[in-house]
């Protein structure tokens, strides 16, 4: 209290997301900032609340053939196909450079079979620098695995339960928006032992080149991200946060301080910034500064006081 009185102009940006304690609620989303370290010259990693790695699989993956992205109004479609260096190289080459930085490192894991998620969780479990694992059970861009696990509540519960037994790390389950009721999947993840939900992954969409009369993406369908999906994602975060008794990390088209505030007010305890980093690699740190400034200007003492405020009765 005396601290608050002494420095009324310095709002508390720290936030607790289940077992995770973050210095601020701004994280970078999986697949939008590589493994973090390679962009240390383009962004100030120290100032992030957390960093979610590109999805890691047991073996390195080359990804999908071009064309992999298509710009759309207010966003873009992607079909990268989970190109990544593999979990072992991440742990040996990248993690040592990340583990002592202030942002929490959340490792995004992807498998083609349940067993692969389990083995991935076992691989990262001994590493102190890994603050949590995020299960990618909602990637729309691979034909097998991933999304199957995220669209069936029973399968998801079973998968999370198996991962739960393989690691003591906090488990984040990244929900797909491409289902009728994401909150049902959220409940299923909780039943399996998830600690945190992140919502949402990309929306399945497509684009057609009117000159060639063919789909733009080599895989025809891709995941839509960017400001275009923000209201859709916000609705899901609102529903999931109200109906599932787990902390939620909001994701979907976040680019401005108002976007961050909306997701917090809808019930998110933190947010991930993704596609906006493509426009400007400093977006996340800009949002940290902007959020602090906004809280100060509004006399709001902490991020905590905002979380879920829009869902409370007036």
């Amino acid at each position: 209290m005396s601290g608050d009185a002494a420095r009324p102009s310095s709002p508390d940006l720290s936030t607790r997301v289940g077992p995770l304690r973050l210095q601020n609620p701004i994280l970078t989303a999986s697949g939008t900032f590589g493994y973090g370290l390679e962009f240390a010259e383009r962004a100030d990693l120290h100032r992030l609340g957390g960093l979610v790695t590109k999805g890691l699989s047991l073996e390195p993956l080359a990804g999908n053939p071009p064309v992999r992205i298509a710009e759309t109004r207010g966003g873009m479609l992607n079909s990268i196909g989970l190109q990544n260096i593999g979990v072992d190289r991440f742990l040996s080459d990248v993690l040592p450079g990340l583990k002592d930085l202030p942002p929490k490192v959340i490792v995004n894991l992807f498998g083609y079979a349940q067993d692969e998620y389990v083995r991935l969780a076992e691989r990262v479990d001994p590493y102190e620098g890994v603050a949590a694992v995020e299960l990618n059970v909602s990637c729309p861009n691979v034909s097998k695995g991933g999304i199957e696990f995220g669209h069936d509540p029973e399968i998801l519960t079973g998968l999370v339960r198996r991962v739960r037994s393989a690691t003591g790390k906090p488990i984040v389950v990244k929900l797909s928006p491409n289902v009728t009721s994401p909150q049902d999947l959220g409940r299923a993840a909780k039943e399996g032992g998830a600690d945190i939900l992140s919502a949402v992954n990309t929306f399945v969409g497509m684009a057609i080149d009117t000159a060639t009369m063919r789909p733009v993406l080599s895989t025809v369908r891709g995941g839509l991200s960017g400001p275009a999906i923000k209201p859709l994602a916000l609705r899901i975060v609102f529903d999931v946060a109200r109906e599932v008794d787990l902390p939620v990390i909001g994701i979907g088209g976040i680019e401005t301080v108002d976007d961050v505030l909306e997701f917090l007010l809808a019930g998110a305890s933190a947010v991930q910034v993704g596609t906006a980093l493509f426009r400007d690699p400093r977006t996340a740190e800009r949002l940290v500064d902007g959020l602090r400034e906004r809280l100060r200007a509004g006399g709001i003492p902490s991020v905590d006081s905002l979380i879920g405020a829009a869902a409370r009765p007036e």
Partner: peptide, 23 residues
């Protein structure tokens, strides 16, 4: 030249197919 998302290696969207089969 390919369509690019970010230009700095983050989005992995600008794959060019190489003769060795990789990107």
């Amino acid at each position: 030249e390919t369509p690019m998302g970010c230009g700095y290696g983050a989005c992995l969207g600008c794959a060019v197919t190489l003769k060795n089969g990789g990107y």
